[in-house]
């Protein structure tokens, strides 16, 4: 396949996955901002979380000066002038899809194009008019539909592989960042892996729900969510589709199956990362310190992304 085509496919799926993740991020923060906040202010800090995680808080403050619920939501979700907004992620995903529309199935293209056209209408209408939770649900639903169309209509081959690579690199990064941010926010509370305070309970539940992993947690641990178990689930459990481990397993298999020798550096790195996770226990993570451990993995996932770029997407 053309390297440019592969790059467009890879970025199409990355941006779409990112849009879905932004919606998940927004969902968890919005629902937590509605909770009683004790002495912790009026929920604005919570609404600022998605901006903090995506590194766009500074940009927001420069433009709007203060934390303001509606402005933050708009800036994050629908603001066309914010390059990192959900709106622009979907725009980029659709633009990449447009460039490779000859390589994806008509079902996939029509799906993503319809999403884009509906988003334009929605942006006109405004977020508060539509409802924030409903908007998050809508984005997730559109993303699910696209993935479903991909899964059930696209030939298994290089096109499918590069879509998987984009999806799982982005998802791995996102799971790490979401967990990290929640862990940081809980501050001292989280240092005790057996923290059972009500606040921590709600925080961890919201995170699990945002990652669609609440049911998995309940089934595996049969108890209320605690920092250590949540971290184990989201980092190390192979059977949870949004966990770091699951993402790396997918990346490793997908890379291993790609034809040609030029991908060796990326294949090797993915295999190393996957093997390290496979033989890591949560106790070791906690011993290193959650933040330090996650920071290192965010770095590693980024390096894997770079390796994929060098090996496949910009071949001379």
């Amino acid at each position: 396949m053309l390297s440019r085509t592969a790059a467009d496919l890879y970025w199409m799926s990355r941006y779409l996955e990112r849009a879905e993740n932004l919606a998940r991020m927004l969902d968890v923060s919005y629902s937590l901002s509605l909770m009683p906040q004790d002495d912790r202010g009026n929920g604005l800090d919570e609404l600022a979380m998605p901006l903090l995680i995506t590194g766009t808080l500074e940009d927001y403050l420069q433009r709007h000066g203060e934390l303001h619920a509606e402005r933050m939501l708009h800036f994050f979700a629908l603001d066309a002038s914010n390059p990192a907004s959900l709106f622009n992620c979907l725009a980029a995903a659709r633009s990449n899809a447009h460039a490779v529309r000859g390589r994806i199935t008509a079902d996939m293209w029509e799906n993503i194009n319809a999403t884009w056209l509906a988003l334009l209408d929605l942006a006109e209408q405004g977020l508060s008019g539509y409802g924030i939770s409903r908007f998050c649900e809508w984005v997730k639903e559109r993303s699910h539909l696209f993935r479903g169309a991909t899964y059930s209509t696209l030939m298994r081959g290089d096109v499918y592989s590069f879509i998987l690579l984009g999806t799982f690199i982005e998802r791995a990064d996102n799971t790490l960042r979401l967990l990290d941010a929640r862990y940081e926010l809980l501050g001292a509370d989280s240092e005790d892996p057996n923290d059972r305070s009500a606040r921590a309970y709600y925080q961890w539940s919201a995170l699990l729900r945002a990652l669609s992993a609440f049911e998995a947690f309940a089934e595996i641990y049969r108890g209320s969510p605690r920092a250590g178990k949540v971290a184990e689930l989201l980092l190390l459990r192979a059977e949870v589709p949004r966990s770091l481990r699951a993402c790396l397993t997918e990346l490793q298999h997908t890379l291993a199956d790609l034809p040609g020798d030029n991908g060796r550096p990326a294949q090797r790195l993915a295999a190393e990362l996957e093997a390290r996770l496979r033989y890591t226990a949560i106790e070791e993570v906690l011993e290193t310190g959650m933040h330090a451990w996650i920071t290192e993995y965010i770095e590693q996932v980024q390096q894997l992304g770079d390796a994929i770029h060098k090996c496949y997407l910009e071949v001379a």
């Binding site: 396949m1 390297s3 790609l258 071949v315």
Partner: peptide, 8 residues
């Protein structure tokens, strides 16, 4: 030649 994921 064209640039592809498996080389030229």
């Amino acid at each position: 030649f064209m640039r592809t994921t498996a080389g030229a």
